[in-house]
Design a protein around this nucleic acid. Sequence first.
DNA 1: TGCGGGATTTACT
DNA 2: GTAAATCCCGCAG
Length: 198
Amino acid sequence: MARWLGKVLPRAFYARDSRIVAPLLLNKLLESADGRVGRIVEVEAYCGALDEAAHTFRGKTARNATMFGPAGHMYVYFTYGMHWCCNAVCGKGEGWAVLIRALEPVAGLDAMRALRGTNDRDLCRGPARLTQAFGITGDEDGVDLVRGPSRFRITDDGRAPPADARASARIGISKAKDFPWRWSVPGNRFVSGSSKQA
DNA sequence: TGCGGGATTTACT
DNA sequence: GTAAATCCCGCAG
C-alpha cells in the first residue's frame, strides 16, 4: 500500500461543477506511487454540453466515455499524434472535467528528468509535458484517483488555493476560447504559456 | 527572446 | 479527409 505525501482528496471533492473544482485544485499535489510529486499550478475546466471545446460537447463516444463516468477518475486522451493529456473527471456523469495543465515539481525529479531531460522548469510546464514526466499514457485512462490500486492520487498537504488565483481564457483551443475557465497560480514560474503573461 | 512550422495518429465528419 | 485541450527546434532580431 503506497504512502501519500498529502491527504487524498475524497470523491465528494470532485463531484461538483468543474468550474468550481478547477480553482480548488490549485496548490494541490499530483502524486505517483513511485514517489513523483508535483504541485498543481495551472488548470482548465471543460464543461460537457455547455462547452463547444469539450470532447464531450457532442455526446458520448468510445474515446470520451471516461469523462461521462464517475467523478474522481482520470480521463487521459491522445492528441496531435504524439501527446497525452490528463484530466480529473468532475460532476455526476455530465461529461465535465478539469485538465491539469502544469505542475511545479516537488519530489521524484530524477525520475522525471530521465523521461524529460534536465531543464527543470520544463519538466511539467504544459499538459503533455507533465504526463510524460509522470509516465501517464492511455493505459491510465479511467483509473481511480481516490481509491484502488491505481498509481496516481491528487492530495492536499495543507496549502490553500491562492486567494488571488487568476482566471483567464483557455489555451490551445479554437472553439469557445473566450470562456475564462483557466486558472493559474499568479507569478509561478512553472505556469505554461508565454513568460510575459501575468 | 520570440516567432513559425513540422511531427504524427487518433477520432470523428 | 482533416482537425486536434501540443511540443520542440530552427532561425531572425
